[in-house]
Nucleic acid binder design. Structure first.
Length: 911
DNA sequence: GAAGATACGTA
DNA sequence: CGTACGTATCTTCT
């Protein structure tokens, strides 16, 4: 037998005991319909959607409500005292689907493994058990929560009894308190069965009074006090409703007899005996293995493990400001193992300034006593004595002295620019946390220490209970910096197991971490800009904007703000009476697609001017932004974000150089202003051709697609010839563009409907096109399906380098969220593998440039493209080693083609 | 002034 | 009812 784990309850603050009562059947049935049957079956063919949904709901309850007593009640059979009273009771219910029936016993097994008591009583329903327990518990000072999809339970609601009624699926619950019941139904909880008797309950096959809904029923109960009052006054109720009431009095009385819950059953257990005894880890493992519940298992263990020590306070500190002559000795004494570093200073856009450095050793290293405090030191880099600086410099540059930073890119650059290059960077806590959970929005050090260490990022206050006079004086800069360094090293150590569990340790060491200095240098170098040309462009686009605005105003006769969607809607739909477009949250869309469609319908010239205005002001705004970003050296230094995109891509900010226009002629003029610097020979761009489709071919192993890439034929032409059954030469431009749209759409989880919208064909034509595609490229279909299935089983997707993306929503009972997660699951391995590959290429190129001591530099990365500034005389060698590095970055079953171009501007270097 | 919504540029 | 981003602008709320 497995060892017991302490129940959640023991950690909950003392107070009134909390009892959770669940209607097992009702919730299981809800779960069954909330989750798609076809997505939940084990390899042996057992359907598990209801078990999954129920267990998921249960885990959420245990986590969010932290009950210390729990009971799940089940119905025994359909024969109850109610069917004796009223033979038709629930007579309308068809027998439950075959896939459902078998799952109830599995749910009972889950409950058994969790040591959650279940109760059932022949002749009675789960609701009666719940009613009895909640009545008893109410007398014994419990707070009671009832989880049931049966509205009859609402009669049990009191100040201390709340019903959680599922709104949608099994995760979205309405908290029905007395106030909520009154608000929703217009009667207090104890009168609810009176109301239900009048209105009827379809799901129980209890007919109500025709023409009487909750509003009328609530009004009557309000007037006559309760059902007896209503019945007594039946004679005086006027109108059709009154007639119907008199005609159906018998049914109403039956209804009321049947829907009242029994509160005094003989039960084998009292509320006190429902206390959770702790659960059986081993049995849960065995059971979940059989059910193939990987994600749920993790959620369960995460939820029910000894709860997080909630922000147990901050960090204790034993640290010192290093004075003259002490830096070398301190480092020798303390900084021999891995240490955390925290730099004070500033850095952005590749430039940095390092003012002071804090170093901390782990809080408790092996061999030390329990809670032994590590050492910490602080040194001011601006005032440090030459001898100390030399010692620090040697230590920083020593690759055998292992260091960990949080978000190293800025600090490494800042230190290097102060003449202190750093080697031996073993880790980066921001990158580590990102690789473990790439969907997080922030990897702020404070958030991470709270999340992983359960501690606030602050200096532990001296708790001597005394008020000091100078309350305003907090910890000084050095203390704060040392605490940060301590947090970094403690966090690093606590991240290790997770890093290995999630297969991310190698990815960190061999890919993301080595990329840090590469990105740092790209930012520092920047790209040269022809500011004069850029200013000319600004004027040009500004003129186009006011031109278009003038003409637009002339057409409609008023001057509105063309940038305001709200004002546009007034003009388009109210004043000009155009047909309504697709809905947005606040009205109707005025996006470019919709405007073009409107123009097709109305040919109204205002639309043309508006579109021109949009284009021109967009371009002007882009140019303005770029002009503002030009640094004193005449170059733009973007910042690359390495922990933002959940798929593993980089992103670029301040300014974003990954979305510089290229599609339109006017837009491309902006690319002409990105130029080679004065000392360079030219710019060189190198990009992967169709890398995502190649990855699709590789991952799917589809013979047809692989052949397409090996044949050297134009991809879309080749695929088109297969899909349409014609010779490649006979693939028309229209056929080719349809195929192109579909091929790319597949990698995004495009639906037939979406494809039809994009190609302006009917959904069934689009479906036909997709069917033909998959007939010819069945491997692609199998692959896409397999990706989602596997992700649902394991909880994550994987790239070719093992980069994971966790998608818990794949098993959400909310269809929108689930389908969104499915599309992410389709896309993540493809987009992410492409990101892996180009990162490998960047490392290889950087190493090659360094090894050969070339002066040319990598400047930009735009997802599948690299931009270099080529030093005089190096064009051929840079081209050669770039192609080498990029096409050799991964071994795929298809070649990785790279195309290269050179020119004085980014535009000219395109190809 | 912050926050949300809308629109749109790239791969 | 197509993935991944960043930025500018307008609107609404605090």
């Amino acid at each position: 037998m497995g060892h017991r784990v302490a129940p959640v309850s023991e950690s909950v603050a003392p107070g009134r005991p909390r009892l959770l009562l669940i209607d097992g059947h009702s919730m299981a049935y809800r779960a069954f319909f909330a989750l798609p049957v076809e997505n939940f079956s084990t390899t042996t063919g057992q359907t598990t959607n209801a078990v999954y949904g129920f267990t998921s709901m249960l885990i959420n309850m245990l986590r969010d409500e932290a009950p210390d007593h729990v009971c799940v009640a089940f119905d025994v059979s359909r024969q109850t005292f109610r069917t004796e009273t009223y033979a038709e009771y629930k007579g309308n219910r068809s027998s439950s689907p075959a896939e459902f029936s078998g799952q109830v016993s599995l749910i009972k097994e889950v409950l058994a493994a969790l040591r959650i008591p279940t109760v059932e009583v022949p002749g009675y329903e789960a609701d009666d058990i719940i009613a009895t327990l909640s009545t008893q518990a109410g007398r014994e000072e419990f707070d009671v929560l009832i989880c049931s999809g049966d509205r009859d339970c609402l009669q049990l609601v009191t100040e201390n009894v709340t019903v959680l009624y599922p709104r949608k699926g099994v995760s979205d619950m309405a908290r029905m308190t007395p106030e909520a019941v009154l608000e929703k139904y217009g009667v207090p909880p104890e009168r609810y069965p009176d109301l239900a008797a009048l209105v009827g309950e379809t799901s129980d096959n209890l007919p109500g009074i025709p023409g009487v809904g909750p509003k009328t029923a609530a009004k009557w109960i309000g007037m006559y006090g309760d059902l007896d009052g209503v019945i007594g006054a039946a004679g005086e109720v006027k109108g059709k409703a009154g007639e119907n009431l008199r005609a159906h009095l018998d049914q109403v009385i039956v209804n009321r007899r049947v829907n009242g819950l029994v509160r005094d059953l003989e039960l084998p257990l009292t509320p006190q005996q429902l206390r959770l005894p702790g659960w059986d880890r081993e049995e849960v493992h065995k059971l979940f293995d059989g059910l193939e519940f990987r994600v749920l298992r993790e959620r369960l263990f995460e939820t029910l493990k000894s709860p997080e020590p909630e922000a147990e306070g901050g960090f204790e500190l034993t640290g010192e400001r290093l004075g003259e002559g002490t830096v070398g000795p301190w480092l020798e004494a303390h900084a021999t193992g891995v240490v955390g570093l925290h730099l004070l200073g500033g850095w952005r856009a590749g430039r940095g300034d390092a003012r002071a450095l804090a170093v901390a050793t782990p809080e408790a290293s092996e061999g030390d006593g329990e809670g032994a405090a590590g050492a910490a030191a602080f040194m001011d880099l601006e005032t440090v004595a030459p001898g100390d600086l030399a010692a620090l410099s040697a230590w920083l540059a020593d690759p055998l002295r292992h260091k960990v930073f949080h978000d190293a890119k800025g600090p490494l650059g800042a230190l290097a620019q102060r003449g202190l290059p750093v080697a031996g960077v073993l880790g980066d806590t921001a990158l580590a946390a990102y690789l473990c959970r790439p969907d997080q929005r922030s990897y702020d050090l404070g958030d991470l220490t709270l999340r992983h260490l359960g501690r606030e990022l602050k200096v532990e206050a001296e708790d001597d209970g005394q008020l000091t006079l100078d309350v305003s004086e907090g910890p000084d800069e050095a203390e704060v910096a040392m605490v940060h360094a301590r947090a970094v090293i403690d966090l690093w150590q606590s991240l290790q197991p997770e890093l290995h569990e999630r297969n991310a340790a190698d990815l960190l060491t061999t890919l993301e971490l080595p990329l840090v200095p590469v990105l740092q240098e790209m930012e520092e170098v920047g790209i040269a800009v022809d500011t004069d040309a850029l200013s000319d462009l600004e004027a040009h686009f500004a003129a186009a904007v006011s031109d278009a605005a003038k003409e637009a105003f002339a057409v409609i006769g008023t001057e509105i703000n063309l940038g305001s969607p709200k004002q546009l809607q007034t003009v388009l739909f109210d004043q000009l009476g155009m047909p309504k477009t697709k809905r947005t949250k606040t009205g109707y869309t005025t996006d470019a697609d919709a405007l073009a469609e409107l123009y097709g319908k109305t040919e109204h010239p205002f639309l043309l001017h508006l579109l021109r205005h949009r284009d021109a002001s967009r371009l002007r705004q882009t140019v303005e932004g770029l002009l503002k970003s030009v640094a004193d050296d005449g170059r733009i230094h973007t910042t690359y974000q390495q922990t933002i995109a959940a798929t593993g891509r980089l992103s670029s900010t301040d300014p974003n150089l990954q979305n510089i226009p290229i599609r339109t002629e006017e837009g491309r003029r902006i690319r002409e202003t990105f130029v080679v610097g004065p000392a360079g020979e030219c710019l060189l761009t190198a990009d992967y051709s169709q890398i995502e489709m190649r990855i699709m071919a590789h991952l799917s192993g589809d013979e047809g697609l692989i052949e397409a890439f090996r044949s050297g034929e134009d991809l879309h032409r080749f695929v088109g010839s297969r899909v349409f059954g014609v010779e490649p030469a006979d693939v028309t431009a229209e056929m080719r563009s349809k195929i192109k749209a579909m091929s790319y759409g597949l990698a995004y989880g495009l639906s037939a409907y979406g494809l039809s919208r994009q190609l302006t064909i009917t959904p069934s034509e689009a479906q036909g096109l997709m069917d033909d595609y998959f007939d010819r490229f069945g491997g692609v279909r199998d692959f896409l399906r397999g990706v989602v299935d596997e992700a649902r089983r394991t909880g994550y997707t994987q790239t070719i380098l093992g980069r994971r993306r966790y998608l818990p929503d794949l098993t959400s009972d909310n269809r929108q969220r689930r389908e969104a997660a499915e599309r992410m699951a389709l896309n993540a391995p493809i987009q992410g593998s492409a990101a892996d590959i180009i990162k490998v290429a960047m490392l290889d190129v950087d190493r090659a440039l360094r090894d050969r001591e070339l002066k040319s530099r990598l400047l930009l990365q735009v997802h599948d493209e690299l931009v270099f500034e080529v030093a005089p005389g190096e064009r051929a060698v840079v081209e050669e080693l770039t192609v080498q590095a990029m096409s050799g970055a991964a071994e795929l079953t298809v070649p990785l083609d790279v195309s290269v171009g050179v020119g004085r501007s980014w535009h000219e270097a395109a190809h």
